[in-house]
Design a protein around this nucleic acid. Structure first.
Lengths: 211, 211
DNA sequence: GGAACAATGTGACAAAAGTCATAGACCAGG
DNA sequence: CCTGGTCTATGACTTTTGTCACATTGTTCC
Protein backbone atom coordinates (compact mmCIF):
# COMPACT_ATOMS: atom_id res chain seq x y z
CA UNK A 1 0.00 0.00 0.00
CA UNK A 2 1.40 3.32 -1.02
CA UNK A 3 1.99 6.30 1.23
CA UNK A 4 -0.79 8.12 -0.56
CA UNK A 5 -3.27 5.43 0.28
CA UNK A 6 -2.21 5.30 3.90
CA UNK A 7 -2.54 9.06 4.19
CA UNK A 8 -5.98 8.86 2.61
CA UNK A 9 -7.31 6.52 5.28
CA UNK A 10 -5.34 7.88 8.22
CA UNK A 11 -5.04 11.60 7.49
CA UNK A 12 -3.66 12.52 10.92
CA UNK A 13 -0.51 10.43 10.53
CA UNK A 14 2.68 12.41 10.04
CA UNK A 15 4.76 11.82 6.94
CA UNK A 16 7.60 9.95 8.62
CA UNK A 17 5.14 7.61 10.32
CA UNK A 18 3.49 6.87 7.01
CA UNK A 19 6.85 6.06 5.48
CA UNK A 20 7.58 3.72 8.38
CA UNK A 21 4.21 2.02 8.02
CA UNK A 22 4.77 1.64 4.31
CA UNK A 23 8.16 0.06 4.91
CA UNK A 24 7.37 -2.19 7.84
CA UNK A 25 3.81 -3.32 7.59
CA UNK A 26 1.97 -5.65 5.32
CA UNK A 27 -1.44 -5.62 3.73
CA UNK A 28 -3.74 -8.49 4.46
CA UNK A 29 -7.06 -9.24 2.90
CA UNK A 30 -10.00 -11.16 4.32
CA UNK A 31 -13.10 -12.17 2.47
CA UNK A 32 -16.48 -11.60 4.09
CA UNK A 33 -17.05 -14.24 6.73
CA UNK A 34 -13.39 -14.85 7.43
CA UNK A 35 -12.02 -14.68 10.97
CA UNK A 36 -9.40 -12.07 11.76
CA UNK A 37 -9.02 -12.97 15.40
CA UNK A 38 -10.08 -15.82 17.62
CA UNK A 39 -10.33 -16.04 21.38
CA UNK A 40 -7.10 -17.50 22.69
CA UNK A 41 -5.02 -16.60 19.68
CA UNK A 42 -1.65 -14.93 20.21
CA UNK A 43 -1.17 -11.45 18.88
CA UNK A 44 1.72 -10.88 16.58
CA UNK A 45 0.52 -7.67 15.02
CA UNK A 46 -1.99 -4.93 15.34
CA UNK A 47 -4.41 -4.16 12.55
CA UNK A 48 -5.63 -0.92 11.04
CA UNK A 49 -8.80 -1.29 8.99
CA UNK A 50 -8.47 0.17 5.52
CA UNK A 51 -11.45 -1.20 3.62
CA UNK A 52 -14.43 -3.27 4.58
CA UNK A 53 -16.04 -3.89 7.94
CA UNK A 54 -15.06 -6.04 10.91
CA UNK A 55 -17.40 -7.32 13.59
CA UNK A 56 -15.99 -7.69 17.10
CA UNK A 57 -17.78 -10.04 19.46
CA UNK A 58 -17.40 -12.16 22.56
CA UNK A 59 -17.86 -15.89 22.58
CA UNK A 60 -18.52 -17.94 25.68
CA UNK A 61 -17.42 -21.51 26.28
CA UNK A 62 -20.68 -22.79 24.84
CA UNK A 63 -20.06 -21.05 21.57
CA UNK A 64 -22.73 -18.44 22.26
CA UNK A 65 -21.79 -15.14 20.77
CA UNK A 66 -22.39 -11.60 21.84
CA UNK A 67 -21.91 -8.69 19.46
CA UNK A 68 -19.99 -5.73 20.81
CA UNK A 69 -19.08 -3.31 18.05
CA UNK A 70 -17.89 -2.84 14.47
CA UNK A 71 -14.47 -1.69 13.34
CA UNK A 72 -14.69 0.51 10.26
CA UNK A 73 -12.06 1.85 7.88
CA UNK A 74 -9.80 4.33 9.62
CA UNK A 75 -10.07 2.46 12.89
CA UNK A 76 -7.88 0.01 14.71
CA UNK A 77 -8.28 -2.81 17.14
CA UNK A 78 -7.52 -1.43 20.62
CA UNK A 79 -7.04 -4.84 22.19
CA UNK A 80 -4.23 -5.92 19.89
CA UNK A 81 -2.57 -2.62 20.66
CA UNK A 82 -2.99 -2.76 24.41
CA UNK A 83 -1.50 -6.25 24.51
CA UNK A 84 1.83 -5.09 23.17
CA UNK A 85 3.10 -4.93 26.74
CA UNK A 86 2.69 -8.61 27.44
CA UNK A 87 2.39 -11.66 25.29
CA UNK A 88 -1.32 -11.88 25.68
CA UNK A 89 -3.93 -13.90 23.90
CA UNK A 90 -7.01 -12.46 22.27
CA UNK A 91 -10.10 -12.20 24.38
CA UNK A 92 -12.33 -11.31 21.49
CA UNK A 93 -13.45 -12.68 18.17
CA UNK A 94 -13.23 -10.56 15.07
CA UNK A 95 -14.77 -11.45 11.76
CA UNK A 96 -14.90 -9.66 8.43
CA UNK A 97 -18.49 -8.74 7.63
CA UNK A 98 -17.51 -7.39 4.22
CA UNK A 99 -14.42 -8.10 2.19
CA UNK A 100 -11.81 -6.38 4.29
CA UNK A 101 -8.32 -5.04 3.87
CA UNK A 102 -6.10 -4.27 6.83
CA UNK A 103 -2.63 -2.89 7.47
CA UNK A 104 -0.93 -5.42 9.70
CA UNK A 105 1.78 -3.89 11.86
CA UNK A 106 4.18 -6.05 13.90
CA UNK A 107 3.66 -5.38 17.59
CA UNK A 108 7.29 -4.47 18.10
CA UNK A 109 6.69 -1.17 16.35
CA UNK A 110 3.84 -0.31 18.70
CA UNK A 111 6.28 0.46 21.48
CA UNK A 112 8.76 2.16 19.27
CA UNK A 113 6.34 4.42 17.44
CA UNK A 114 4.57 5.52 20.58
CA UNK A 115 7.70 7.38 21.60
CA UNK A 116 8.72 8.43 18.13
CA UNK A 117 5.57 9.76 16.48
CA UNK A 118 3.15 12.09 18.17
CA UNK A 119 0.45 11.29 15.63
CA UNK A 120 0.76 7.57 16.33
CA UNK A 121 0.62 8.18 20.06
CA UNK A 122 -2.57 10.20 19.69
CA UNK A 123 -4.13 7.72 17.32
CA UNK A 124 -3.48 4.89 19.77
CA UNK A 125 -4.85 6.81 22.73
CA UNK A 126 -7.90 7.84 20.75
CA UNK A 127 -8.43 4.22 19.75
CA UNK A 128 -8.35 3.16 23.41
CA UNK A 129 -10.76 5.88 24.36
CA UNK A 130 -13.19 5.03 21.59
CA UNK A 131 -13.14 1.31 22.39
CA UNK A 132 -13.53 1.93 26.10
CA UNK A 133 -16.57 4.01 25.26
CA UNK A 134 -17.99 1.26 23.05
CA UNK A 135 -17.56 -1.24 25.87
CA UNK A 136 -19.23 1.06 28.38
CA UNK A 137 -22.16 1.64 26.02
CA UNK A 138 -22.45 -2.10 25.56
CA UNK A 139 -22.53 -2.63 29.31
CA UNK A 140 -25.16 0.06 29.69
CA UNK A 141 -27.44 -1.58 27.21
CA UNK A 142 -27.36 -5.03 28.72
CA UNK A 143 -27.38 -3.81 32.29
CA UNK A 144 -30.07 -1.17 32.06
CA UNK A 145 -32.24 -1.94 29.06
CA UNK A 146 -34.77 -4.55 28.10
CA UNK A 147 -34.47 -6.60 24.95
CA UNK A 148 -36.82 -4.45 22.90
CA UNK A 149 -34.72 -1.36 23.52
CA UNK A 150 -31.54 -3.27 22.88
CA UNK A 151 -32.97 -4.52 19.61
CA UNK A 152 -33.80 -0.97 18.50
CA UNK A 153 -30.33 0.18 19.38
CA UNK A 154 -28.81 -2.76 17.53
CA UNK A 155 -30.79 -1.94 14.39
CA UNK A 156 -29.91 1.73 14.62
CA UNK A 157 -26.27 0.92 14.91
CA UNK A 158 -26.48 -1.26 11.85
CA UNK A 159 -28.14 1.45 9.80
CA UNK A 160 -25.41 3.89 10.76
CA UNK A 161 -22.59 1.49 10.14
CA UNK A 162 -23.86 0.01 6.91
CA UNK A 163 -25.17 3.30 5.62
CA UNK A 164 -28.42 1.74 4.50
CA UNK A 165 -31.92 1.49 5.93
CA UNK A 166 -32.20 -2.02 4.60
CA UNK A 167 -30.39 -4.47 6.82
CA UNK A 168 -29.87 -7.86 5.21
CA UNK A 169 -30.14 -10.14 8.23
CA UNK A 170 -32.31 -12.96 9.53
CA UNK A 171 -34.05 -13.05 12.89
CA UNK A 172 -31.89 -15.98 13.90
CA UNK A 173 -28.70 -14.03 13.22
CA UNK A 174 -29.91 -11.16 15.37
CA UNK A 175 -30.83 -13.61 18.11
CA UNK A 176 -27.34 -15.08 17.95
CA UNK A 177 -25.66 -11.71 18.17
CA UNK A 178 -27.80 -10.51 21.07
CA UNK A 179 -27.57 -13.91 22.74
CA UNK A 180 -31.34 -14.27 22.75
CA UNK A 181 -33.83 -16.60 21.10
CA UNK A 182 -35.14 -16.35 17.55
CA UNK A 183 -38.78 -16.37 18.71
CA UNK A 184 -38.25 -13.46 21.06
CA UNK A 185 -36.59 -11.46 18.31
CA UNK A 186 -39.33 -12.32 15.81
CA UNK A 187 -42.02 -11.23 18.27
CA UNK A 188 -40.29 -7.98 19.13
CA UNK A 189 -39.69 -7.22 15.48
CA UNK A 190 -43.33 -7.95 14.70
CA UNK A 191 -44.34 -5.53 17.40
CA UNK A 192 -42.04 -2.90 15.99
CA UNK A 193 -43.56 -3.45 12.55
CA UNK A 194 -47.03 -2.91 13.96
CA UNK A 195 -45.78 0.35 15.45
CA UNK A 196 -44.50 1.41 12.04
CA UNK A 197 -40.87 1.41 13.13
CA UNK A 198 -39.68 -1.22 10.67
CA UNK A 199 -40.85 -3.19 7.68
CA UNK A 200 -40.10 -6.88 7.73
CA UNK A 201 -39.02 -8.88 4.73
CA UNK A 202 -37.56 -12.32 4.52
CA UNK A 203 -33.87 -12.16 5.42
CA UNK A 204 -33.90 -8.40 5.70
CA UNK A 205 -35.38 -5.58 7.70
CA UNK A 206 -36.16 -2.10 6.49
CA UNK A 207 -35.84 0.52 9.19
CA UNK A 208 -38.57 3.15 8.81
CA UNK A 209 -38.29 5.29 11.88
CA UNK A 210 -36.43 4.63 15.11
CA UNK A 211 -36.10 7.25 17.80
CA UNK B 1 4.19 11.52 49.95
CA UNK B 2 7.84 10.57 50.01
CA UNK B 3 9.72 8.76 47.27
CA UNK B 4 10.02 5.77 49.55
CA UNK B 5 6.31 5.50 49.93
CA UNK B 6 5.70 5.87 46.20
CA UNK B 7 8.24 3.15 45.47
CA UNK B 8 6.59 0.94 48.04
CA UNK B 9 3.23 1.06 46.29
CA UNK B 10 4.50 1.22 42.72
CA UNK B 11 7.69 -0.80 42.77
CA UNK B 12 8.13 -0.89 38.99
CA UNK B 13 8.52 2.87 38.70
CA UNK B 14 12.03 4.08 37.91
CA UNK B 15 13.74 6.49 40.25
CA UNK B 16 13.48 9.59 38.09
CA UNK B 17 9.76 8.98 37.57
CA UNK B 18 9.27 8.69 41.31
CA UNK B 19 11.08 11.97 41.82
CA UNK B 20 8.85 13.60 39.22
CA UNK B 21 5.71 12.20 40.84
CA UNK B 22 6.89 13.40 44.21
CA UNK B 23 7.51 16.88 42.85
CA UNK B 24 4.46 17.33 40.65
CA UNK B 25 1.58 15.39 42.14
CA UNK B 26 -0.51 15.86 45.18
CA UNK B 27 -1.99 13.51 47.72
CA UNK B 28 -5.71 13.51 48.16
CA UNK B 29 -7.74 11.71 50.75
CA UNK B 30 -11.32 10.54 50.59
CA UNK B 31 -13.33 9.10 53.41
CA UNK B 32 -15.38 5.99 52.84
CA UNK B 33 -18.50 6.88 50.91
CA UNK B 34 -17.05 9.92 49.24
CA UNK B 35 -17.20 10.34 45.44
CA UNK B 36 -13.95 10.52 43.53
CA UNK B 37 -15.54 10.85 40.12
CA UNK B 38 -18.97 11.55 38.77
CA UNK B 39 -20.43 10.98 35.34
CA UNK B 40 -20.06 14.16 33.34
CA UNK B 41 -17.24 15.58 35.40
CA UNK B 42 -14.16 16.96 33.61
CA UNK B 43 -10.87 15.25 34.21
CA UNK B 44 -8.05 17.39 35.44
CA UNK B 45 -5.88 14.65 36.77
CA UNK B 46 -5.36 10.95 36.86
CA UNK B 47 -5.33 9.03 40.09
CA UNK B 48 -3.16 6.27 41.44
CA UNK B 49 -4.67 4.41 44.39
CA UNK B 50 -2.31 4.25 47.32
CA UNK B 51 -4.48 3.14 50.22
CA UNK B 52 -8.07 2.11 50.54
CA UNK B 53 -10.51 0.80 47.95
CA UNK B 54 -12.47 2.50 45.18
CA UNK B 55 -15.60 1.17 43.56
CA UNK B 56 -16.14 1.96 39.89
CA UNK B 57 -19.67 1.78 38.57
CA UNK B 58 -21.98 2.99 35.84
CA UNK B 59 -25.04 5.04 36.52
CA UNK B 60 -27.93 5.41 34.10
CA UNK B 61 -30.15 8.45 33.72
CA UNK B 62 -32.58 7.04 36.28
CA UNK B 63 -29.89 6.85 38.90
CA UNK B 64 -29.71 3.06 38.67
CA UNK B 65 -26.25 1.88 39.32
CA UNK B 66 -24.24 -1.02 37.98
CA UNK B 67 -21.06 -2.19 39.65
CA UNK B 68 -18.13 -2.84 37.33
CA UNK B 69 -14.94 -3.31 39.30
CA UNK B 70 -12.80 -2.22 42.23
CA UNK B 71 -9.60 -0.21 42.09
CA UNK B 72 -7.15 -1.34 44.70
CA UNK B 73 -3.87 0.10 45.96
CA UNK B 74 -1.21 -0.06 43.27
CA UNK B 75 -3.79 0.48 40.55
CA UNK B 76 -4.90 3.45 38.52
CA UNK B 77 -8.00 4.60 36.77
CA UNK B 78 -7.61 3.78 33.08
CA UNK B 79 -10.34 6.12 31.96
CA UNK B 80 -8.81 9.24 33.41
CA UNK B 81 -5.61 8.25 31.67
CA UNK B 82 -7.11 7.48 28.31
CA UNK B 83 -8.89 10.83 28.26
CA UNK B 84 -5.67 12.79 28.34
CA UNK B 85 -5.89 13.10 24.57
CA UNK B 86 -9.09 15.09 24.59
CA UNK B 87 -10.90 17.12 27.14
CA UNK B 88 -13.37 14.45 27.93
CA UNK B 89 -15.86 14.02 30.69
CA UNK B 90 -16.07 11.03 32.95
CA UNK B 91 -18.33 8.24 31.89
CA UNK B 92 -18.07 6.41 35.15
CA UNK B 93 -18.72 6.93 38.82
CA UNK B 94 -16.05 6.17 41.39
CA UNK B 95 -16.61 6.07 45.09
CA UNK B 96 -14.32 5.30 48.01
CA UNK B 97 -15.50 2.12 49.71
CA UNK B 98 -12.88 2.47 52.43
CA UNK B 99 -10.98 5.57 53.48
CA UNK B 100 -8.80 6.12 50.47
CA UNK B 101 -5.63 7.95 49.61
CA UNK B 102 -4.66 8.69 46.01
CA UNK B 103 -1.79 10.31 44.16
CA UNK B 104 -3.38 12.89 41.91
CA UNK B 105 -1.30 13.63 38.83
CA UNK B 106 -2.16 16.55 36.48
CA UNK B 107 -3.08 15.18 33.07
CA UNK B 108 -0.44 17.26 31.34
CA UNK B 109 2.22 14.93 32.71
CA UNK B 110 0.48 11.90 31.26
CA UNK B 111 1.63 12.83 27.78
CA UNK B 112 5.04 13.91 28.86
CA UNK B 113 5.87 10.92 30.98
CA UNK B 114 4.70 8.41 28.39
CA UNK B 115 7.61 9.39 26.22
CA UNK B 116 10.06 10.02 29.01
CA UNK B 117 9.73 7.04 31.35
CA UNK B 118 9.54 3.48 30.15
CA UNK B 119 8.14 2.33 33.47
CA UNK B 120 5.33 4.86 33.27
CA UNK B 121 4.54 3.82 29.71
CA UNK B 122 4.32 0.17 30.74
CA UNK B 123 2.27 0.93 33.81
CA UNK B 124 -0.23 2.88 31.73
CA UNK B 125 -0.49 0.17 29.08
CA UNK B 126 -0.91 -2.49 31.73
CA UNK B 127 -3.62 -0.40 33.35
CA UNK B 128 -5.48 -0.20 30.04
CA UNK B 129 -5.14 -3.91 29.47
CA UNK B 130 -6.36 -4.78 32.95
CA UNK B 131 -9.35 -2.47 32.73
CA UNK B 132 -10.25 -3.70 29.26
CA UNK B 133 -10.22 -7.19 30.68
CA UNK B 134 -12.44 -6.18 33.59
CA UNK B 135 -14.93 -4.66 31.17
CA UNK B 136 -14.94 -7.77 29.01
CA UNK B 137 -15.49 -10.00 32.04
CA UNK B 138 -18.33 -7.74 33.10
CA UNK B 139 -19.92 -8.00 29.67
CA UNK B 140 -19.58 -11.77 29.74
CA UNK B 141 -21.36 -12.04 33.02
CA UNK B 142 -24.36 -10.00 32.09
CA UNK B 143 -24.57 -11.33 28.55
CA UNK B 144 -24.08 -15.02 29.23
CA UNK B 145 -25.00 -15.69 32.83
CA UNK B 146 -28.15 -15.76 34.91
CA UNK B 147 -28.52 -13.74 38.06
CA UNK B 148 -27.64 -16.60 40.40
CA UNK B 149 -24.30 -17.11 38.71
CA UNK B 150 -23.68 -13.41 38.62
CA UNK B 151 -24.42 -13.19 42.31
CA UNK B 152 -21.92 -15.93 43.08
CA UNK B 153 -19.29 -14.20 41.02
CA UNK B 154 -20.04 -10.90 42.72
CA UNK B 155 -19.62 -12.45 46.16
CA UNK B 156 -16.40 -14.21 45.15
CA UNK B 157 -14.98 -10.98 43.87
CA UNK B 158 -15.81 -9.28 47.14
CA UNK B 159 -14.12 -11.99 49.18
CA UNK B 160 -10.99 -11.64 47.06
CA UNK B 161 -10.94 -7.88 47.12
CA UNK B 162 -11.80 -7.42 50.77
CA UNK B 163 -9.70 -10.33 51.88
CA UNK B 164 -12.42 -11.61 54.19
CA UNK B 165 -15.09 -14.29 53.97
CA UNK B 166 -17.47 -12.05 55.81
CA UNK B 167 -18.93 -9.44 53.55
CA UNK B 168 -20.69 -6.62 55.37
CA UNK B 169 -23.46 -5.80 52.95
CA UNK B 170 -27.27 -5.79 52.79
CA UNK B 171 -29.37 -7.52 50.18
CA UNK B 172 -30.62 -4.16 49.01
CA UNK B 173 -27.09 -2.92 48.38
CA UNK B 174 -26.30 -5.99 46.31
CA UNK B 175 -29.55 -5.50 44.39
CA UNK B 176 -28.57 -1.90 43.68
CA UNK B 177 -25.10 -2.86 42.45
CA UNK B 178 -26.34 -5.66 40.21
CA UNK B 179 -29.30 -3.54 39.07
CA UNK B 180 -31.77 -6.14 40.28
CA UNK B 181 -34.46 -6.25 42.95
CA UNK B 182 -33.91 -6.88 46.62
CA UNK B 183 -36.40 -9.77 46.69
CA UNK B 184 -34.65 -11.59 43.87
CA UNK B 185 -31.32 -11.23 45.65
CA UNK B 186 -32.82 -12.38 48.96
CA UNK B 187 -34.33 -15.45 47.34
CA UNK B 188 -31.15 -16.39 45.53
CA UNK B 189 -29.10 -15.91 48.67
CA UNK B 190 -31.54 -18.06 50.64
CA UNK B 191 -31.15 -20.76 48.04
CA UNK B 192 -27.40 -20.50 48.26
CA UNK B 193 -27.64 -20.79 52.04
CA UNK B 194 -29.69 -23.96 51.70
CA UNK B 195 -26.97 -25.34 49.45
CA UNK B 196 -24.39 -24.55 52.11
CA UNK B 197 -22.59 -22.01 49.97
CA UNK B 198 -23.12 -19.05 52.31
CA UNK B 199 -24.36 -18.22 55.77
CA UNK B 200 -26.69 -15.26 56.03
CA UNK B 201 -26.66 -12.72 58.81
CA UNK B 202 -28.30 -9.35 59.02
CA UNK B 203 -26.27 -6.84 57.01
CA UNK B 204 -23.60 -9.37 56.21
CA UNK B 205 -22.95 -12.59 54.39
CA UNK B 206 -20.42 -15.24 55.28
CA UNK B 207 -19.10 -17.08 52.26
CA UNK B 208 -18.62 -20.75 53.05
CA UNK B 209 -17.79 -22.39 49.79
CA UNK B 210 -18.21 -21.04 46.28
CA UNK B 211 -16.88 -22.87 43.25
C1' DG C 1 -43.66 -28.30 -10.95
C1' DG C 2 -42.09 -30.67 -6.85
C1' DA C 3 -38.97 -31.43 -3.08
C1' DA C 4 -35.95 -29.85 0.27
C1' DC C 5 -34.55 -26.51 3.19
C1' DA C 6 -34.50 -22.31 5.63
C1' DA C 7 -36.91 -18.29 7.49
C1' DT C 8 -40.80 -16.68 9.89
C1' DG C 9 -45.13 -16.66 12.62
C1' DT C 10 -47.60 -18.23 16.48
C1' DG C 11 -49.66 -20.86 20.40
C1' DA C 12 -48.78 -23.16 24.69
C1' DC C 13 -46.08 -23.53 28.40
C1' DA C 14 -42.03 -22.87 31.59
C1' DA C 15 -38.56 -20.29 33.92
C1' DA C 16 -36.48 -16.18 35.50
C1' DA C 17 -36.95 -11.82 37.15
C1' DG C 18 -39.58 -8.10 39.00
C1' DT C 19 -43.44 -5.79 41.76
C1' DC C 20 -46.50 -5.36 45.58
C1' DA C 21 -47.84 -6.35 50.12
C1' DT C 22 -47.18 -7.90 54.61
C1' DA C 23 -45.10 -9.86 58.68
C1' DG C 24 -41.31 -10.83 61.63
C1' DA C 25 -36.65 -9.92 63.32
C1' DC C 26 -33.02 -6.93 64.61
C1' DC C 27 -30.79 -2.69 66.07
C1' DA C 28 -30.14 1.92 67.89
C1' DG C 29 -31.63 5.59 70.61
C1' DG C 30 -34.42 7.67 74.16
C1' DC D 1 -38.13 -1.41 78.03
C1' DC D 2 -40.36 0.77 74.12
C1' DT D 3 -40.46 2.91 69.66
C1' DG D 4 -39.10 3.74 65.13
C1' DG D 5 -36.62 2.40 61.40
C1' DT D 6 -34.29 -0.89 58.65
C1' DC D 7 -33.44 -5.51 57.05
C1' DT D 8 -35.11 -9.92 55.68
C1' DA D 9 -38.45 -13.57 54.45
C1' DT D 10 -42.20 -14.89 51.82
C1' DG D 11 -46.59 -15.27 49.22
C1' DA D 12 -49.20 -13.72 45.30
C1' DC D 13 -49.12 -12.01 41.05
C1' DT D 14 -47.18 -9.92 36.64
C1' DT D 15 -43.93 -9.32 33.02
C1' DT D 16 -40.23 -10.69 30.23
C1' DT D 17 -37.72 -14.06 28.08
C1' DG D 18 -36.96 -18.62 26.52
C1' DT D 19 -38.30 -23.42 24.86
C1' DC D 20 -41.00 -26.58 22.31
C1' DA D 21 -43.93 -27.70 18.66
C1' DC D 22 -45.91 -26.96 14.52
C1' DA D 23 -47.62 -24.50 10.46
C1' DT D 24 -46.85 -21.31 6.76
C1' DT D 25 -44.12 -18.96 3.46
C1' DG D 26 -40.32 -18.17 0.42
C1' DT D 27 -36.28 -19.65 -2.17
C1' DT D 28 -33.38 -22.70 -4.67
C1' DC D 29 -32.35 -26.65 -7.25
C1' DC D 30 -33.40 -30.67 -10.01
Amino acid sequence: MSATEIREHFPTFEKELIDDIEAKSEIRSFTAGEQLMRTGQYFKSTMLIVEGLVKVYREDDQGNEFFMYYLQPGQACALSMVCAVKQETSQIMAKAVKDTEVISIPLAYMDEWMGKYKSWYHFVLETYRARFEELLVTIDHIAFRAMDERLEFYLKKHVQTLGSKIIPISHQEIADELNSSREVISRLLKKMEQLGKVKLQRNSIEVIHLS
